[in-house]
Design a protein around this nucleic acid. Structure first.
Lengths: 341, 341
DNA sequence: ATAATCTGTGCAAACGATTTACTTTTCTCG
DNA sequence: CGAGAAAAGTAAATCGTTTGCACAGATTAT
């Protein structure tokens, strides 16, 4: 049925080993034989069976990405495509394939990982998130299996991971507002159990403290990565006697809610309230007004994390924690003086 | 190193075949042996080598999704995550894995597909888009390889595919505006080479004709799936002597641009101009005002398309063209009389 | 009682490559 | 010219499973 290496060998009048070596560009093959065999391969439309190859080489040229279960996916919704493109770009370059897997709960996820790793189906793994005391990470470390984490592990310092400097990013964002003359700056935050949230909060605190600006606890609101979260936060933050005149928002989607909430309360942006948020998803520039946002380099995160895994597979030394530079993209929402069309 | 079926066999005092049969739940294995072997497997942490399994069974329990190259991805940006979740849900249920592949150009894409198919790495394939006279589709048909298309092929009627009834969807959207008392209805369209665009235009024409409403060619503008496209369309549509009082927009992202353009021209929504768009991405309800949009069932598209491929793999009969129901989600942007908060 | 069927298991041959260890052929050069 | 080295290629083992066939012992039918 399908054409095998033996078919090629027979037709070319050589042994299977020779064909194999032609494919591998083994030096001990004469130019003539190589040419001849290649011609036959072409003619027969031969493609090596990847399973057989993997079986003997104990290598699959495949790495897997584990998708978070639904409950933890919120943030990913808008990142995902960019991230995967970055991952795929790197893997394709290196001749690797990408396997995507997940599970509907923690237990299933771990089972999937076990099956893939122990079953020899993949050479490396990429985790898109970290939860504290993650059994998957524990398992992978025990197996000494090549993997990298996008984000930061709360449990171990030395987990190979690619992340942003979220402290600095929030610091920069806050500084930007301060440079615009803002003094009363609030923070619409996310779930504090996430390293990302904690880091951004700290950057904000740091900038405020450095500038000697007072801040009230009532200007800071925890929430989730949901539109509603930002919307509701406005009701509590902006209705107090002395509300902030500027807000740092943990994520663009949350910022959309903030925009909505502010509009309903009659605040103009940026004249009454200036806004800076994070992640710079494609829609940040489409709102009215466009939102200033810290670009975290989503594509780069995927690209670099994959590269890290590939390096580990090649037994190369890696730096356990790699930082992707961020970049504050300033748009109308944070500018003190703007000329509106 | 890794524990194989032989290790299990030896420790259990049986042959490798017996262990294999225990795993396969072969009927001719005694309950006692089965219990014993399973215990040993557990103890040793045995997981079958998937490559060896695939080699002999000529089956991989993997299907691939081919990612469009960057130039054609625009639309996918917001769909992608939902779509993949649908795909993954179906595949996980059936015990299949998902491989993701792509290429930076058409040639590379075809090579990837050839390598995967001929190399026996996958059992089925999912295409997320259709271009006319797609060499990949040609190849897959020739190989009689199980695959399904999300969308509609412009070349062949009988390509297994999962799609919306876009004609009906646009018809419904237009009817809704008409029911709101709208008479001057325009259409902000997409690239006409796409089946999706053509279908939606036709639905719009049909509803207009049926209602006996006049329409001007100047109320219809072609564009792309970009924010700018909708923004620019406003400058041409809304500045003419008798502009439409309602607009059908090909896609939510384009609608965001429309919103922006209308705001700059001083139109209020929906009082001055009503809007309905398509795809109902997560952000449609976050705009000011929230946009009425036709939900196309993105998750379902992925879920059903995967199911179709799985059926083909099982040699089951399938209906070549499956339609996912759409649903018009009415929000403020299209309501004639609204009480704004 | 004996033949026929059933049960439970083992042996060995695939599956389609790679790779080690040889064998044969061709050079090179004293 | 012939020995030894280098070059080119082959045969066979191997990777970890599955599975058709054989076979022994237990069970059932005649």
């Amino acid at each position: 049925m399908t054409v095998t290496i033996k078919d090629v060998a027979k037709k070319a009048g050589v042994s299977a080993s020779t064909v194999s070596r032609v494919i591998a560009e083994h030096p001990r093959i004469s130019a003539e034989t190589s040419r001849k065999v290649k011609a036959i391969m072409e003619e027969l439309g031969y493609h090596p069976n990847l399973m057989a190859k993997s079986l003997v080489s104990r290598t699959t040229r495949t790495i897997a990405v584990i998708l978070p279960k639904p409950a933890e996916e919120l943030l990913l919704n808008f990142f995902f495509y960019e991230l995967i493109r970055g991952v795929l770009a790197q893997l394709t370059r290196a001749g690797y394939d990408l396997l995507m897997a997940g599970g509907s709960n923690e237990q299933e996820e771990l089972e999937t990982v076990t099956r893939l790793v122990r079953g020899g189906r993949i050479d490396g793994l990429l985790l898109l998130y970290s939860r504290s005391s993650d059994p998957i990470i524990t398992f992978l470390r025990k197996e000494k299996f090549p993997f990298a984490l996008i984000g930061r592990s709360l449990d171990y310092e030395d987990v190979p991971s690619v992340d942003n400097d979220n402290v600095q990013a929030a610091y920069d964002a806050t500084k930007h507002l301060i440079a615009q003359g803002q003094k009363r700056i609030g923070f619409v935050s996310g779930p504090t159990k996430l390293a990302m949230t904690q880091d951004r909060m700290n950057g904000y605190y740091k900038a405020m403290a450095e500038a000697g600006l007072p801040f009230k606890q009532s200007w800071v609101v925890e929430g989730e990565f949901l539109l509603e979260s930002g919307y509701r936060a406005m009701a509590s933050i902006m209705t107090q006697p002395e509300p902030p005149t500027a807000l740092i928002v943990i994520d663009d989607v949350v910022a959309f809610g903030v925009l909505k909430g502010l509009a309903e309360l009659g605040y103009r942006i940026p004249q009454d309230v200036a806004i800076v948020s994070f992640n710079n998803i494609a829609l940040s520039e489409l709102t009215m007004p466009p939102i200033s946002s810290v670009d975290v380099g989503t594509y780069q995160l995927g690209y670099t994390a994959s590269q890290m895994v590939l390096r580990m597979i090649q037994q190369e030394e890696i730096t356990a924690r790699q930082i992707i530079p961020h970049r504050l993209v300033v748009r109308e929402s944070s500018l003190r003086t703007v000329s509106l069309a």
